[in-house]
Amino acid sequence: MNEPNRIGLTPLAAQQLDELLVELNPEQDSKRETVKLIKFDLYRLAIALGIKENKTPPALNDKSNAVFRVNELDPDKTLFTVVECLGSCPKEVAIYSYIEQLAEQGIKEFYQHFQQRGELPLTDYLLDKS
């Protein structure tokens, strides 16, 4: 299976990611330097949560804006290896395409949760329930 060099999001999810970043990052503070999130941070977390929760993502319903270079997003192929090892990716789908679908699904969920609660339910995402 040929793996894509670039992956991304549909225009809708890409816009939602942009909005989330605006909400989650602080306004410019002239007095001190602040830590800011970038697109990769939310994108990777969306994939990781999809993998952990063993989600089955649907195929993208629109053409992807493939703006992320796979080599930059997953430089040591961690995401690839995990998906490969878990065997959760259907055979007819390239692993990075599957990863892209997980990200698309995850970002949309983030956006929906943020709309509902006014914040990301990080405790729900990250608390180890086991």
């Binding site: 602040t34 999130l37 941070d41 977390l45 929760e53 995401l79 180890d128």
Partner: peptide
């Protein structure tokens, strides 16, 4: 709060590894 929010975002950047760690 501002300091903790910074700290939170910093942790957020690598939180995907923690999630994967638990997932695998």
């Amino acid at each position: 709060l501002a300091y903790d929010a910074d700290e939170q975002r910093k942790l957020f950047q690598s939180s995907w590894k923690d999630v994967l760690f638990k997932g695998v």
